[in-house]
Amino acid sequence: MRQKFIELGEGYTDIYELIELGRQMPSRVKGALAFHCEREGKPKSSLALIMAPADKFQPIYICREGIPNPHEIPNTRYDLFKRMTEEIGVDIHEYTLKPSTMFPETELYYQYLIGILRSNKELPRLT
């Protein structure tokens, strides 16, 4: 099964689409994630939803490093994401990681995230 990140944007307004995906397809949401990092000296967070596989493909929708880390700078966008996860009965699993700017290509960053998620059993192994 192929697992792939689908980037909706950086989370400024794209976060509302991510929230709507969770609300419209709660039965497909298998996990909610918050990745925290320091990017360009600022605390940033990415929010993501792991969806149930569709045939041989498992999408992970993400808004990458566009909102402040809510543990350092409280913000409404994170609160709305958290409220949606509570409504659909999914916990947010949080990780502190390297920022995407440390990788020469975004695709390498996403491979790094997939490796972390597999090792933490958030994603199934490749079969």
Rank of each mutant, 00 (worst) to 15 (best):
R118Q: 15
V90Y: 00
P74G: 03
E40N: 13
P99R: 03
I88L: 06
L21G: 00
A48V: 09
R28E: 10
Q3N: 11
E107F: 04
R64H: 02
Y112I: 08
N120L: 02
P59F: 08
L108S: 13
F103L: 03
M84V: 13
T96A: 08
F35Q: 01
Y61D: 03
I6M: 04
L21R: 04
E87A: 07
K42W: 00
R83C: 09
H93T: 15
K30L: 07
L49T: 05
E107W: 05
P26C: 11
R39S: 05
N69K: 04
C63T: 11
M25N: 13
L97I: 15
L18C: 10
C63I: 08
Y109I: 13
Y12F: 07
A48Q: 05
G31T: 02
E10S: 06
F57N: 05
R64V: 10
E7G: 01
Q58R: 14
Y109C: 13
E10Q: 13
Q58P: 06
F81A: 07
K82S: 14
I92H: 12
I62T: 10
G9C: 12
M84N: 08
S46C: 06
S27R: 08
D55R: 00
I19S: 02
F81Q: 09
T96V: 13
E38S: 10
S119F: 05
L126K: 15
I116P: 05
Y16E: 12
E7Y: 01
D79M: 12
R28V: 03
R83N: 11
Y95P: 04
I73T: 08
E40M: 14
Q111R: 13
L108K: 13
K44F: 00
P99C: 02
R118N: 00
G11P: 09
L18N: 08
L8W: 10
L21A: 00
N69S: 05
F81L: 04
D91I: 13
R2S: 03
E87N: 03
L8C: 03
D55N: 07
Y112H: 10
P99T: 09
M25V: 08
L21M: 11
R39P: 00
E7L: 15
P53K: 07
G11E: 06
A48G: 14
C37S: 15
S46D: 10
C37A: 14
H71I: 04
T101G: 01
Y61Q: 10
T101R: 05
L8D: 05
L18K: 07
I50R: 11
Q111W: 01
Y78F: 15
N120P: 04
R77S: 12
G66L: 00
Q3M: 09
G11A: 11
L113K: 10
F35V: 05
T96H: 06
